[in-house]
Amino acid sequence: MTIQQMHNVGIVVDDLAGAVAFFKELGMELEGEGAIEGLWADQAVGLDGVRCDVAMMVTPDGHGRLELSQYHSPALIPGPRNQPHNVLGTHRVMYAVDDLDDTITRLRRHGGELVGEVAQYGDSVRLCYFRGPAGIIVGLSEYS
């Protein structure tokens, strides 16, 4: 048996509306949103009394999805937000964009900030890591 596709990456946030606005600014579209609760949710995630709101974001090509979740129950467990990228289990999501400088400018208006600097890799790629909502590291790359 093989994997058919990667369906989505899930990230827990503490401000769902703010995270949706950030990823909309990046160019993703809101595919759907709803409330999740019940025995099936408890069983799937291994927690008791799950109650959360989710928003499914999709890339313009329809192939990449990001599931943003804001837990109401059990209580959200805050974690460090500004971990460096080499911490075990640290996640990042990478996107190709058409204008890196413009994207950085627009995302800064939503509270995002560069992790390091914009780097040039070879002759064809400019890239950077950017910290977004809930400390999410978002990789951005521009191919020429």
Rank of each mutant, 00 (worst) to 15 (best):
V125F: 08
G49M: 09
V50H: 07
E113Q: 12
Y143A: 07
G135M: 03
A44R: 09
M1C: 11
V50T: 09
D123A: 15
Q5A: 14
E25A: 15
L26Y: 06
H110L: 10
L68R: 03
Y121Q: 11
E25M: 15
G62K: 09
S69T: 14
F130N: 08
V13W: 04
E117K: 14
L26P: 02
V58F: 03
T103P: 03
V12I: 14
L66R: 07
F130V: 13
G32S: 11
G18K: 04
G112H: 01
Q70W: 06
G27Q: 08
M28V: 07
G135F: 02
I3Y: 15
A35G: 02
R131F: 07
P84H: 05
E117C: 00
S124F: 15
V58P: 00
Q120I: 03
G89F: 04
I136K: 03
Q83H: 05
A55S: 11
T59K: 01
Y143V: 07
L16M: 06
Y121N: 08
M6C: 11
F22K: 03
Y95V: 12
S69A: 13
L76N: 07
P78M: 02
Y121V: 13
R126Q: 14
G111C: 07
I11K: 00
M57V: 08
Y121D: 09
I3R: 10
R126K: 15
D15R: 11
L47G: 01
Q83R: 12
V97Y: 05
G38E: 05
D101E: 15
L88Q: 08
Q120T: 10
G64K: 01
G38N: 05
D98A: 13
H7E: 15
G34F: 03
L39D: 01
P133N: 07
M28L: 15
V9C: 11
D102G: 14
Q43A: 11
L68D: 01
A44E: 00
P74N: 05
G49V: 13
L76H: 10
H110N: 13
E113N: 10
C52A: 14
P78S: 04
G139W: 05
E67H: 14
Q83M: 08
L30P: 07
E31M: 12
D15S: 09
M1D: 10
P74A: 03
E117P: 00
R51T: 10
A96S: 10
G111Q: 09
V20C: 08
R106D: 06
P80D: 06
R108E: 15
Y129W: 12
R92Y: 06
I136P: 00
P80Y: 04
E142T: 01
Q43E: 12
I77R: 08
R65E: 07
L88M: 13
Y95H: 08
L26G: 03
I104K: 07
